[in-house]
Amino acid sequence: MDLSGIGRYFFNGEVMLKALPLLASGLVMTLKVSCVVIGIGFGVGLILALIRTGTAKTRVVGKVVGFLIRLYVDLLRASPYLVLLSFVYFGLPFLGVNLSTFWATVITFSACLSAFAEETFRAGIEAIDRGQWEAARSLGLSFFDTMRHIILPQAIRISIPALTNWTVAITKAISMASAIALPDLLKQARWAQGIFANPSPLIEAAVIYVLLFFPLVKLTLFLERKWGKLV
């Protein structure tokens, strides 16, 4: 072990400075992908949860829809991110579906997030007291109005701690996309390391990641404490 190298190799100011523009573009990509994944993931998850709770009472349609959605959710929850991503990026071309690294990443991680989001929203909706439904329907409110004005506002509020938790987990996992050469923060850092023959950019990227996620992790803990539940 050569500890004297730590300064020269891990915290080399000159290299870090030169690598900064590369890392910056990587960060932008990471953020772009994250935002799209969160948007699509939450959206699809919410829609699926609404469909599932909405059809829960009906006999045949409800059971079929419930089964299909549960299948979708369970399969995605059980799939390792990188394996799924590899399948989407390397496997689908065999069917003629050639996605860019950006879209392969977005589709894979949105799907995974949507599964977690569906479970969370569904649990939130089911946690709302039956009496709220009954009172709203007794006034003559339609199913949609009841959902929109009474149930969802309350359900989303109690879902927020779990949602933030999963969002942090998924956005961290997105860094795996560097393995399929998505030019995100990690990939750019590895590239910079290659160019400068010095791992300081890697340390730099790690620091940026921690600075990015540290407040989010703290936020999740704060929300969990404030609104209950050990997620």
Partner: peptide, 22 residues
């Protein structure tokens, strides 16, 4: 707190590609 905020793959890269330099 720091480790939870760091993606696993980044940690792995650090261990496998950076540590050899020392």
């Amino acid at each position: 707190d720091v480790v939870r905020a760091c993606p696993i793959i980044v940690l792995l890269m650090l261990i496998y590609y950076a540590l050899p330099f020392i």
